[in-house]
Amino acid sequence: MTAITVIGTGNMGQAIAGIAAQAGANVQILARDLEKAGTTAASIKATAGVVGDAISGEIVVLALPYPALAEIASTYGDQLANKVVVDITNPVDFATFDGLVVPADSSAAAELAALVPAAKIVKAFNTNFASTLVAGEFAGEPTVVQLAGDDEAAKKLLADVIVAAGLKVADAGALKRARELEALGYLQMVLAVREQIGWTGGFAVRA
């Protein structure tokens, strides 16, 4: 049985933890606030702890804002070696909401890979709103999670969990495709902020 650690208890963290539990994984929830971690964990029969506690999952989902990635990399360091580390962030400039804050030839996922080079980084979930993950379907079809990464086995391990929960996966290829996924995630957020779509909407991917 796959073991998954989700760091973060926001809407995305709760949604992804729910997917992991639905897939039959052993789930650990870590947050800065133990009470919040406990509340999320209780709803899916997971274990709870605080950031800084030992990681139990072979897959570690960083369900956190982009600025927190460096802190987590520093906190856990070698503990992330050889683990599948999932970056869900969209590195948006929230002060202006006018673009991404990473260089044009880079991505949040690439920066994370540089911080924890022994980890197997996978970009995923950043093009999904939490509501579509919770619902498990969008536009009449199973919700599709787009992902990218350089380690094929790492992507398959994560994909197997997603599929076991009844969702679908679209593999965009190497980790360098994270840049395009982050741009797509940002555009989707812009449309929602401008009220062109709802936060229950987004881009549908169909095979």
Rank of each mutant, 00 (worst) to 15 (best):
M1C: 09
M1W: 14
T2K: 15
I4Q: 04
T5L: 00
V6F: 07
I7F: 04
G10Q: 09
N11K: 13
N11A: 10
M12Q: 02
G18F: 06
I19E: 01
I19G: 00
A20W: 05
A21C: 11
Q22P: 06
G24Q: 05
N26G: 14
N26P: 10
Q28Y: 09
L30I: 02
R32Q: 08
D33K: 10
D33N: 12
D33W: 07
L34W: 14
K36P: 03
G38M: 10
T39D: 14
A42W: 10
A42L: 12
I44Q: 08
I44V: 12
K45E: 15
K45L: 13
K45M: 15
K45I: 13
A48H: 01
G52I: 05
A54L: 10
I55G: 00
S56P: 06
G57M: 06
G57L: 05
V60Y: 02
V60L: 09
A63G: 07
L64R: 10
A68N: 03
L69Y: 05
L69D: 03
E71M: 09
E71K: 13
I72T: 10
A73M: 05
A73I: 06
A81M: 09
N82W: 11
N82Q: 13
N82R: 11
K83S: 01
V85Y: 00
V86F: 07
D87L: 06
T89Y: 00
N90E: 08
N90Y: 01
N90I: 04
N90S: 03
F94W: 15
A95Q: 14
D98K: 13
L100E: 02
A104P: 04
S106G: 06
S106T: 09
S107Y: 04
S107K: 03
S107D: 02
L112G: 02
L112H: 01
A113D: 02
A113R: 05
A113Y: 04
L115R: 12
A118R: 14
A118N: 13
A118W: 14
A119V: 05
K120M: 07
K120P: 00
I121R: 00
I121K: 02
I121P: 00
V122L: 05
F125A: 02
F125L: 03
F125T: 05
F125Q: 01
N126V: 06
N126T: 08
T127D: 08
T127Y: 11
F129P: 03
A130R: 12
T132P: 02
T132V: 14
G136R: 03
F138Q: 09
A139P: 00
A139I: 09
E141W: 14
T143H: 01
L147M: 13
L147S: 03
G149M: 07
D151E: 06
L157P: 06
L158R: 01
D160E: 12
I162P: 00
G166W: 08
K168L: 12
A172T: 07
G173C: 08
G173N: 07
A174Y: 11
R177Q: 15
A178Y: 01
E180W: 15
E180R: 10
L181N: 01
E182L: 08
A183G: 09
G185D: 04
M189H: 11
L191Q: 14
A192K: 10
Q196T: 11
I197G: 00
G198F: 11
W199R: 15
T200D: 12
T200S: 12
A204W: 15
V205G: 11
A207R: 15
A207Q: 14
